[in-house]
């Protein structure tokens, strides 16, 4: 049995809108429509899609916050909406834009309160807290009330809080939103470590594709409530018919290079850009270019994943 099993999951919202002074119309909005996927223990899954695609709605159903209107759902063998409270001990949730910590309490007191709420053994709590304090560099912040923490500091506190009770699954909703480059890097490093050393399964929604590129082997793309892609990052590139680019610096200016399997997209003096399908191997193209022309230098540019996803959306 998979850790997370989702089958034909749907959620509709009834939206009442004003149509004129008194009259109101009722619309049914399908936030999530017939979603199916499994997640195995120890996976790190990126869950992406545009605003309003149904990402948060899915996460909220997986955590038991929202009750599905259709389909089946099992997380760690538990039905989230029926046994929400039992599930809470086995999952950790981080909401990027808002803290789950107590605004007026110092971080240390928040952690201590969580220990008692989750009934975590004091020794285990101490061990976890020490480890997270070191890895997330929280030492100097423990006695600061949450309201006085910066966004990045607060996020680190929130992530530690979500992991203190040793959850099997960690949901992260936009964990790197608003963070600077250095903080993002440190956070990703920490998450990778948590996944490897503690075998915590990670499911994260994000707008930042770097998060996905650096953390997730598997990507799920949702749009208008339906899953439009589920697979590896490489496969996503192929699916989007994305291209890689070979940048060739010739010794002298020349007419556009002609080799099989690639075409010139841009010429600038002695430098030429050749694009070829991301799925194809670069070797034969490099070989034909090198044998037919006087080459000074060669480099390959990887495709931009944002372009790939834009491509997928635009083709729908």
């Amino acid at each position: 049995m998979s850790l997370i099993e989702v089958e034909d999951l749907s959620r509709t919202f009834v939206v009442r809108r004003r149509a004129g002074r008194v009259r109101r119309t009722t619309d049914v909005v399908h936030a999530v429509r017939d979603l199916s996927f499994d997640v195995e223990r120890g996976e790190m899954v990126g869950y992406i899609g545009p605003n309003g695609a149904g990402k948060s709605t899915t996460i909220k159903m997986l955590t038991g916050i929202l009750v599905p209107t259709g389909g089946r759902l099992s997380v760690a063998g538990i039905d989230p909406s029926r046994q929400r409270v039992d599930l809470t001990r086995r999952i950790g949730v981080v909401f990027g834009q808002r803290t789950t910590l107590w605004w007026d309490l110092p971080l240390r007191d928040s952690f201590d309160l969580l220990r008692r709420i989750y009934r975590v053994d004091p020794q285990r709590h101490r061990r976890n807290l020490d480890e997270f304090t070191e890895l997330l560099d929280l030492g100097a912040l423990l006695d600061t009330p949450v309201r006085q923490l910066s966004l990045g500091q607060r996020m680190r506190g929130d992530i530690a809080a979500a992991l203190l009770h040793d959850p099997e699954i960690l949901y992260l909703d936009e964990p790197t939103i608003g963070l600077d480059v250095v903080s993002k890097g440190r956070l990703r490093e920490f998450l990778r470590r948590v996944n490897e050393e503690r075998q915590v399964t990670l499911l994260l929604t994000t707008h930042d594709l770097q998060d996905i590129e650096q953390l997730c082997r598997r990507v799920m793309v949702i749009d208008h409530g339906s899953l439009v892609y589920d697979g590896s990052l490489a496969g996503l590139h192929a699916r989007g018919e994305s291209t890689r680019t070979l940048v060739v610096d010739l010794v002298d200016e020349a007419a556009p290079i002609e080799v099989p399997g690639a075409r010139v997209t841009r010429v600038e003096g002695p430098r030429q850009w050749l694009s070829f399908p991301a799925g194809a191997s670069a070797a034969p193209i490099v070989a034909s270019v090198a044998s037919g022309y006087d080459v000074a230098d060669l480099s390959i540019q990887e495709p931009d994943i944002e372009d790939v996803i834009r491509e997928i959306y635009s083709r729908r």
Partner: peptide, 14 residues
């Protein structure tokens, strides 16, 4: 409205 209710929903207390 503030979203703190969501946070309460994922804690092991009624």
């Amino acid at each position: 409205r503030l979203g703190s209710f969501d946070a309460m929903m994922v804690r092991p207390v009624g």
